[in-house]
């Protein structure tokens, strides 16, 4: 398979990663190698095999609907890179 530079750019966009153009060829080469390794899976016969999402054959436990958290805004926002009036700030969101 060919992991070309376009695929790298498309994927980097989905992952919101500002990959500089000069890094793209090298990254494409590395991803190509990884995907080639992974490609080996295709040859394994798996017809009728149940996909395994999780090691535990358990069911989801449910939590009682009781308020368990007090206001801890100050502590939770202590590491915020930008905040004002109890809000996290980001460059304007354009809808």
């Amino acid at each position: 398979m060919a992991f070309d530079q376009d695929a790298v750019r498309r994927t980097a966009h989905l992952a919101r990663m500002a990959l500089p153009q000069e890094e793209v060829p090298a990254v494409a080469g590395q991803l190509e190698k990884i995907m080639t390794m992974v490609e080996a899976l295709r040859a394994i016969p798996t017809e009728g095999v149940m996909p395994m999402a999780h090691p535990l054959d358990l069911e989801q436990a449910l939590r009682p609907d009781q308020i368990a958290n007090a206001d801890q805004r100050q502590r939770l926002m202590a590491s915020a890179p930008a905040a004002e009036h109890g809000l996290f700030l980001v460059p304007k969101v354009i809808e």
Binding site: R42, I44, T46, V49, P51, M52, A53
Partner: peptide, 15 residues
């Protein structure tokens, strides 16, 4: 399907 689902199936085989 080609990668993720396939890998989950092989995961079953490994188990």
């Amino acid at each position: 399907d080609a990668y993720y689902l396939k890998a989950q199936q092989v995961r079953s085989l490994i188990r």
